[in-house]
């Protein structure tokens, strides 16, 4: 079998490409991402000449159009890239930990925790700007995920099924409490209406600095647990027989996904389908190899996010559609097509 030929990893799963073909695919994804990064700076709801874009980046001056590039398009491009990476890898970790191909970071209560914390920040503490409630969102996501981890742990160890159920239950309770607060507080209602749509508009790059160290730690953890997660896909007992410690692996993976999803959600609000669809597509392309899934998710998620954001800037000119709305519109039909195809990608 040549490196380019498809090979079958185990009976019943889809044929997956060899490592060379995966590498080529990865290079194509990287090229696409670079192209979208350029497009994201070039395309917007205002027509700005490419020469102005070039000058804005490499010959900065106090020009009104250059400000539009440097102050708005460049930050939202960087924010889209970082948030996309975070949500994509978090989604891949989540699907691996829960052994659920349709899990997204929200299923462990990350979105609900962040959302409730933002509601509290706005409604009870009167915080109005994103920078102010960033830490609330981050802390809310972390606390709720740790709570779900505790609830999902039994004497026999952590159970993915119990964790998912705990996440769904805690999420439902927090959504109810958040709604109650929003309905009695107009300021919270206004803030959450906007935040819940999921957007990368109006987020300065400065917003990223506090969460980047957490993202870096989480990505290192993700790489570290990718091998053990492959072993755990066969079952905890078989993984343990190979020297893997499932409980530790699961905790590290959950810490990583919480940092990534919590940080991403804190910055952009809950963005649907990125953390759900991208790892699913990645698994479809590369098969059940977590390291490859992580690598593909790391590139495909910002591709989806940036492409959706660019689309959202131009389809309703002069207004824009929040990226979270576009990813839902794009993601839902694609995901339906994926799950309906004859050979779904299992875990």
């Amino acid at each position: 079998m040549t490196a380019l030929a498809l090979r079958r990893d185990d009976p019943g799963t889809v044929p997956v490409p060899g490592s060379r073909r995966r590498s080529i695919g990865l290079a194509v994804a990287l090229g696409t991402l670079l192209l979208l990064l350029v497009l994201s700076v070039m395309v917007g709801s205002t027509a700005i000449a490419p020469s102005v874009v070039w000058d804005a980046l490499f010959h900065p001056a106090a020009d009104i159009d250059q400000f539009a590039i440097r102050d708005y398009r460049l930050p939202r491009t960087v924010v889209g890239l970082v948030v996309g990476v975070a949500l994509g890898v978090a989604g891949a970790l989540n699907q691996a930990v829960t052994r659920n191909p349709l899990a997204d970071p929200g299923i462990l209560g990350v979105h609900a925790g962040a959302s409730f914390a933002v509601t509290v920040a706005v409604g009870l503490f009167g915080i109005r700007d994103i920078g102010g409630y960033l830490w609330f969102a981050f802390a809310g996501a972390l606390i709720v995920t740790l709570m779900v981890l505790a609830l999902g742990s039994t004497r026999q160890g952590q159970s993915p099924v119990v964790m998912v159920l705990a996440g769904v239950c805690v999420g439902a309770v927090l959504r109810g409490a958040g709604s109650a607060l929003e309905l009695t507080n107009p300021a919270a209602f206004d803030a959450m209406r906007s935040w819940n749509a999921g957007s990368i508009v109006g987020r300065p790059v400065d917003l990223l600095w506090p969460v980047l160290p957490f993202f870096a730690v989480a990505l290192v953890l993700a790489v570290a647990v990718s091998g053990p997660l492959d072993a755990m896909a066969l079952g905890d007992e078989l993984a343990a027989a190979q020297g893997v410690r499932p409980a530790v692996t699961r905790i590290l993976a959950i810490v990583a996904l919480t940092l990534l999803a919590g940080g991403g959600t804190a910055i952009a609000g809950p963005i649907a389908f990125v953390g759900l669809m991208v790892p699913h597509v990645a698994r479809w392309i590369v098969g059940p190899h977590q390291r490859w899934i992580f690598a593909y998710s790391l590139l495909l998620a910002p591709i989806l996010l940036l492409a959706s954001d660019i689309l959202g800037r131009v389809v309703m000119h002069p207004s824009e559609i929040p990226v979270g709305v576009v990813t839902a519109f794009v993601g839902a039909p694609v995901l339906i097509a994926l799950v309906r195809r004859s050979k779904a990608s299992g875990l």
Binding site: G44, S45, T46, I64, D65, F67, A68, D71, Y72, R73, V201, G202, R313, P318, S319, E320
Partner: peptide
């Protein structure tokens, strides 16, 4: 209609 800040120009 909400306009993005880049349209301030």
């Amino acid at each position: 209609t909400s306009l993005p800040f880049e349209q301030i120009a």
